[in-house]
């Protein structure tokens, strides 16, 4: 659906060059929710703004449904943009317009027939749950309601793609959840492909199918959300996972346990999260596991759990237990203070 090919973007601001994007390639498949996560300044906004060419690449190509947008004339580009909705962190509504006008005016300006405008506004206000606010001005709405209006405004053009630039970053946690489930519904029920950028891991956790991690203008890691969660490869990705699964154990405790066995991190993904793995370990080997910390989270399609466990026992028995766990599909890593280490 959206395909970035070797995009580089250099900003020339006052004698200082910034390479906001550095050879970025990315493919957003039709029907998916694709998340791009990174810290502030990583280049996420620049990237999402490339999708509809609000920002033009210095080099590289942007394909939308097979068409290279960088070659289009302004009027053809404007046509293509009508097929891509966009929402923003700051909502960007007209202050001087009612909710109705905010949704209807852009439709008018893009040549949607009058009769249809009314029907569309009504339809999408209902989808976002704001039927009763049609005549309110944005100043009278909460942040979550403003974002709903912005979503309705974007959807009213009946686009195939929705671009979200930190759409929930200005909202409180409850409102964030509500907006995220609205986006998820839009994806499932209307079949709209979503490309979103965020600096919050819980956004990725909740609704994304795929994720790319950005750092310093580059995509340093990408894949299915579950894979990046279970086995983050880069330091940045690990820190993002850590932000949701704070599984650090007090150092003193680690030191006191180290002599009597091994401390490991167990990640349970999908199937393996259903099995009573630790109970079986206790039964089959001369090993006594005790849980030092544990988290479980619902990813988009499957649960994901992570435990830090102390396996008390002699070296051979614990090694056998670990092999057994790996057989069960549990991902086992050695616990390391301040980070994790693979056990082979």
């Amino acid at each position: 659906m959206i395909h970035f090919e070797n995009i580089t973007k250099v900003f020339d601001a006052k004698s200082k060059e910034t390479k906001a994007l550095d050879d970025v390639s990315l493919h957003v498949k039709k029907g998916t929710i694709f998340g791009v996560i990174g810290y502030s300044g990583a280049g996420k906004s620049t990237l999402v703004r490339m999708a509809n060419l609000l920002e033009k690449p210095t080099t590289g190509k942007v394909y939308f449904k097979g068409t290279d947008l960088t070659t289009l004339s302004m009027s053809k580009l404007q046509e293509a943009r009508r097929n891509m909705g966009m929402i923003f962190q700051s909502f960007n509504l007209l202050k001087t317009g009612t909710v109705y006008e905010n949704i209807a005016n852009p439709l008018k300006l893009t040549g949607v027939p009058k009769k249809e405008i009314q029907a569309r506004v009504a339809k999408y206000l209902e989808i976002v749950g704001l039927q009763d606010k049609a005549n309110a001005y944005p100043a009278k709405l909460s942040g979550g309601q403003k974002q709903r209006v912005a979503i309705a405004r974007a959807l009213a053009h009946e686009p195939e793609v929705l671009l979200c630039d930190e759409a929930t970053s200005a909202l409180d946690p409850d409102t964030t959840d509500a907006i995220l489930s609205l986006l998820d519904r839009i994806n499932q029920e209307l079949g709209i492909t979503i490309l979103l950028i965020t600096h919050e891991m819980n956004v990725v956790q909740n609704i994304c199918h795929e994720v790319a991690v950005m750092d310093n203008g580059r995509i340093i890691e990408q894949g299915k959300v579950i894979d990046v969660f279970a086995q983050p490869k880069t330091k940045t990705a690990k820190r993002f996972v850590q932000s949701l699964f704070n599984d650090s154990v007090p150092e003193q405790l680690v030191n006191s346990l180290e002599g009597s066995g091994q401390i490991v991190t167990l990640s349970f993904v999908g199937e393996s999260s259903g099995k009573p793995a630790l109970a079986m370990v206790t039964k089959q080997f001369d090993v006594y596991p005790s849980i030092l910390s544990g988290n479980i989270a619902q990813l988009k399609d499957q649960p994901f759990g992570r435990l830090v466990v102390h396996l008390q026992g002699n070296a051979t028995e614990t090694q056998k237990a670990i092999s057994y766990l790996i057989e069960l599909g549990v991902i086992v890593e050695g616990y390391k203070k301040g980070g994790k280490q693979h056990v082979s």
Binding site: R81, F88, S90, F91, L93, L109
Partner: peptide, 12 residues
Amino acid sequence: GVIEAYEAMGIK
């Protein structure tokens, strides 16, 4: 931002 939102909607 509002101007940008309108540009993103393909408005002249």
